[in-house]
Every structure is written in structure tokens, then in C-alpha cells.
Design a protein around this nucleic acid. Structure first.
Lengths: 257, 257
DNA sequence: CTTGAGTGTTCAATATGTTGAACGTTGTTC
DNA sequence: GAACAACGTTCAACATATTGAACACTCAAG
């Protein structure tokens, strides 16, 4: 977005500042003082004061002594955002109706830039050692759901996302270059499902497949099954792959694909 | 909050308006046009235009054709809000470590005004017919976790929350008056656990207990076990009650209580 | 106990965001 | 195809939000 190029493209400054304050609070490990906010964002103290007071009155920040932390109002929007997603609802229904799915961990994500965002998860009976929280973000290139969604995109769009290179690796096995990622995406298209073999977490293997809606073009979400099995056998991956394709198709069919 | 009484109490109007737009988008079943926003909030069209463009640029709204829906940026804040809660982390750990808990549905809420907000949930093997989504809100007076938390509060504070009466009932069994609620809270204190017997949903019975942190005063959260059993027997409730007390205490101990 | 540094709060002058009017676009009706 | 209504977009005049300066408060150091 070319800033200040044209009147109409200029953001409302107070709103931008307020969002920057909330982002700062989200990133911060401890409550933020007014002085912290003014310093970190380069704001006059009186401006920081007015904005923080407003955010506190609106329930977006909460005062803890003289400092601020994120308030609960954000959860109203998060709830609405997650609920608005038809695919999340279908995911919940699928889980309720399919006892066989309860052993492994299931997740559903959407793509946001080069990240996946978790919009639904059901942790299985077998522990993974990782909790996929709603709202959590991970690099799409590394996750099973992300690879599944990327594989439905035009190659130039994928290259556009990674023109400055891939994110920092998370394990020894994490994909590091765009060339290798493109080869992986070719394999996903051929096989029909994606594999995250220890790329996000050592020992964790995930298979994923894209979920489509009625438009049937690019994926609107990614569905994955995850297990913790450092030495998983090839035929188990094939079985899980068949499962994830089947259930992702079932989700897609319910969404009019 | 006495509006306009004093300079310092006046909110930043653009921020209030932006939040009102996001609240409207959260409430709306369909994408909102600029005209919808201007009309619903009584804003000039050009002001609505500028605010919506700004929110879209910041990722808080997303354009769908010529209309707007909530954007994914809210999930960054929701994730941070939920992750910030130590009690949610301990809840996840408890689930991972305790296979016996996997049969029923477990939930964890915090109190926000007269509502509970779900900050963690694990759906059990037995289906409930209701999905507790993170961020979801329900009236505290009706839920097991809410009653558990209310029971640790000063009675005048409870009366303050309900000075205008209880919310609209959700079932035939929902508590309707403050007097009855106070009796229920007396029973919770005596018994050590709360019961939602079909007050939120027909057929669903939940038991709850408060969770404390190191301060040990009022509850910081409520923990509940939920089952779908229209004709649950008294001794099953007692067993679930003992369980919920035990696990809530375990959570509390881990939080320094 | 005093002093100094850093914090939060207040308010009128000043810089600038808001908005009414105008215009272009789109879709519906006749 | 024309006319009309409702929409989205633009921009300069004007209403008002922002902020520098000042002050009160709190806490730590000496």
C-alpha cells in the first residue's frame, strides 16, 4: 500500500495507533505502562494516555495496577470470526459424528499471508506434546495444512509469498528453500495429501489435505491429522493419508464442493 | 462512565467508532456494506468509508466483494489473550496427563462481568450436542463454572451484578431470580462444587468448581465437567462432583494456591 | 527526611481529521 | 436503452482531536 500517495488511502491515525497498542500488548510478556507504550510506539505521552484510556473503557485493555494487559473484548470478535467460518462448524460436526477420528489429533487452519491460523482443533487420545490453540499461527510452508493449501495455489502466487525466502526453520527437518518446497508441493498434488514429517516439531508427523467450498477453486482451509511417532512406518502414513483425503473430501462436499 | 463530564474521561472518537464497527461485524450474519455500517451506527458515509478502509488495511476487516467481514487479525489478540492465561496452560497439561478425563467434556472459563468466557475446552468421547468454542460467552448465573466462581465472591458484589435481574432463561430449568441464585450459591459453598442441571441446555448436566491462584482469595477461573444425561443419578453427580473438586484443586495447586 | 527521576494526568493552542457536497459507478425498474 | 436510486469515492472547509508544557504524584537513593 503506497502510503500518503492519495488522500483516500490514508488510514485513520487514531485507529492505526490503537491497533499498534493492542499488537504491542499481545506481544508483551508483562503488563505495559503508559510510558512503555509511548516509548515503544514513539507516541506523545498524552496521546498514549488518551488511547489507552479509551481502549480500557472499551474492554480491549484491562488495567492491572498502573499497567495494561489485553482485555476480554477481543474474544467477542475471535468467537464471531471462528463461528463465522462454516468450515469450522462442519469440522465440529465431523468430529461429533465420527468416533474413529478420536484417536489422533485433528486440526483445521486457514491461510493468512504465509501463515496458517488454527480455527479449529480436536486433540486426540494420544498426546502430541503440543497444543494447537485457536488463533495460533505457524508458517504455512512447514505445516501439513499449509502445504495442502499452498499446493492448490498458482505457483507464481506461492513464489510471491516467499520472494524473500522461507521463514527460519523450526527443526532439523524443516524445509529451507523455495525449490525444495516446490518439489514438496508437486508431490502433494500427485499424492493427494501433504506430509509434515518432523518439520514443525521433532517426532510429530502430520498429514493434510485441502478443503474446498462450492467455488471449488483454491482451498479455503486445510485439514490435518497429527500423531507423535518418531519412527512411523510408510504404510501407516499411507493409511493416514487415505483417511485425511477422505475426511477433507467429506468436509468439502458438505460445503458444496 | 459519566460521558463528557470531564476532558480526561472522553474516549478517542475514531477508536470508539472503529470498535463499534467491529462489534457490528461480529453480530452480523452477513457481510456488511459501507451503507449498512453508516446506517446502523449513524455515521456520515465518508467517515464510515475511512474507518472501514483503515480496518481493512489493518486486517481487522476483510473485503468480500463490496462488503466487509471480520478479518483474521483479531485472532492474534485472541491467541495472545488465551495464551496469557496461565490457567489455560495448566488445563492443557492436566488433560494431556490424565487419560481418565477424556470421557467427559471439560471446560475452563473466566468471569467477565456477569458472563463466563470460555478460554479452554476439551470435548470428550461422549458427544454433548454443544460445542464450547474459545471466546464463547454464556451467563455466569446459569453455568457450572459461573456458579462456582460467583460462590467465591462477596454477596454484595453478586447482587451488584444482578441488580436489574437475571438474564433471560435458556431452558425451563434455568434459575430466574436472585433469591434462588443465592440459595444455589449457598449450596455450592456447602457442597464444594456447583451443578448446572439442564439450566443451559436440556439434558446436559455439568459440575464445576472454582480455580484459585496463589492469592487464594476469589476464584480466577471455573473448571467444569459436562455430560449429556437427562436422567443422571444422584450418586453419579456426587462422583463427578468429587472429580471436579479434585481436578480444580490440582489446577489451583499448580497455580500456587 | 529530602531530593531527583520518572511516572500519570490535565488543558488550551494548534495541527489536522472529519464530513457535506458533489460526482462517478452500479444495478434495478420500466 | 433510459431513468432513477442507492451505492462508493473524493476533497477542501471547518470542527475538533492532538499534544507540548506544566503540574501532581510516587518511589528510590542518599
Amino acid at each position: 500500500m503506497s502510503a500518503d500517495e492519495h488522500h483516500a488511502t490514508k488510514d485513520v491515525p487514531a485507529v492505526s495507533r490503537a491497533v499498534a497498542i493492542l499488537d504491542l500488548a499481545a506481544r508483551s510478556d508483562e503488563p505495559l505502562t503508559l510510558a512503555d507504550v509511548a516509548r515503544a510506539l514513539g507516541l506523545p505521552k498524552s496521546s498514549a494516555h488518551g488511547l489507552c484510556a479509551t481502549l480500557a473503557n472499551l474492554g480491549l485493555l484491562r488495567r492491572r495496577g498502573g499497567a495494561f494487559v489485553l482485555g476480554g473484548h477481543v474474544m467477542r470478535w475471535a468467537n464471531a470470526f471462528a463461528a463465522r467460518s462454516d468450515v469450522a462448524e462442519e469440522f465440529s460436526r465431523l468430529w461429533d459424528e465420527t468416533p474413529a477420528l478420536r484417536v489422533e489429533t485433528l486440526t483445521l487452519t486457514i491461510l493468512d499471508g504465509a501463515d496458517v491460523v488454527y480455527i479449529a482443533s480436536r486433540h486426540g487420545e494420544d498426546p502430541l506434546g503440543i497444543t494447537f490453540r485457536i488463533g495460533m499461527r505457524l508458517p504455512a510452508a512447514f505445516t501439513a495444512t499449509g502445504k495442502a493449501m499452498l499446493s492448490t495455489m498458482e505457483i507464481n502466487e506461492v513464489r510471491g509469498l516467499y520472494r524473500r525466502g522461507l521463514p527460519a526453520p523450526m527443526t532439523e527437518r524443516t524445509v529451507r528453500t523455495l525449490d525444495v518446497l516446490e518439489e514438496e508441493l508437486d508431490e502433494v498434488r500427485r499424492r493427494g495429501f501433504s506430509i509434515d514429517d518432523h518439520q514443525v516439531r521433532d517426532g510429530m508427523v502430520c498429514v493434510g489435505a485441502p478443503v474446498f467450498d462450492f467455488s471449488g477453486e483454491r482451498a479455503i482451509g486445510g485439514f490435518a491429522i497429527s500423531i507423535l511417532d518418531p519412527n512411523v512406518e510408510t504404510d501407516r502414513i499411507a493409511t493416514l493419508g487415505a483417511d485425511v483425503i477422505r475426511y477433507a473430501r467429506l468436509l468439502s462436499q458438505r460445503l458444496g464442493s
